[in-house]
Design a protein around this nucleic acid. Structure first.
Lengths: 150, 150
DNA sequence: TTGATAATGAAAATCATTTTCATTAACTGA
DNA sequence: TCAGTTAATGAAAATGATTTTCATTATCAA
């Protein structure tokens, strides 16, 4: 992160993966984005910069980065997955949503994180011990009816 | 629920929807299931009992029931949505998952619900007031690496 | 520099879900 | 009870996201 080579290259090379132009570009794009983006979003940006990049590669790269734990994949129920760097300096870090069951609007909220942090860290600790699970992130969604729909 | 007619019929008729054989069957199937099922799961069961029912109708009915708040729709990120009756007597009631980022296994956990209940009801109250949102349910997911993958 | 092979991109294939449209059936009013 | 209105249905086609195939290209180790 502050060393010589980009932080993520070690991770790829460590598992025998190669450092390629498409991969560099896709990670760069994720870096300069402060929100969760779809594969198509990434493809559009990537393609502007380097038109030879294909959508297939975007999918494959995002999947690989997810497997590596570098990227987190989200599913909000609207049919397309979203991706975000796990350690994004600009990232929202928390993923909390209010989802309207009727109009399907997804709202982010950022309030009440103090109570939540307390609950999450407690629960996370117990869960990782009990299930031998390394927990890196979480998502909380509340479902219901929004102001306009109820 | 203890009255004469099935509890859900009023809800449908109240919004001008008709009571039909496919709808009755689909709700009955959801009732006797204690887990979240995919549209295809419902279709298979329904089709065994009444082969004239089509997959399209299953999708349409599940969607309508979701809009009505009778059914809750979930997205676990494996490409197919799951559905469950909101007030299912056999239902798990809570939806808490531990999701492995590598092998994509989804585990349910049911521990530590006391702490959670406290947190959820507090947060839920504040959120519904602040956003004017009627909250009916929630889902919490922890992401990481499972025992075998880390 | 070169060879083995991982990575790529275009096109085709998949898979879940939605739309279209002609037919059927539920309810409303007579 | 019956007939007419129209919501609901089902089959097939369409859609849209994601995955697979396969021939070509490019990375990196020797």
């Amino acid at each position: 992160m502050r060393g010589r080579g980009p932080w993520w290259q070690d991770r790829l090379q460590g598992m025998g993966a190669r450092i390629t132009a498409p991969r560099e570009l896709i990670i760069e794009i994720l870096h300069e984005t402060d929100d969760h983006v779809s594969a198509a979003d990434v493809y559009v940006r990537a393609h502007q910069i380097n038109p030879s990049i294909g959508l297939t590669t975007v999918y494959r790269t995002l999947d690989m980065l997810t497997q590596l734990g570098i990227v987190q994949k989200f599913d909000f129920g609207d049919g397309k997955a979203r991706y975000e760097l796990v350690n994004n300096p600009n990232g929202k870090k928390h993923h909390h949503h209010l989802i309207c069951l009727r109009c399907k609007t997804i709202m982010d909220y950022t309030e009440f994180l103090d109570e939540e942090l307390e609950f999450v860290s407690k629960t996370q600790g117990k869960l990782s011990k009990k299930y031998n699970f390394t927990i890196t992130d979480h998502a909380i969604s509340f479902y219901g009816l929004c102001e306009r729909c109820r």
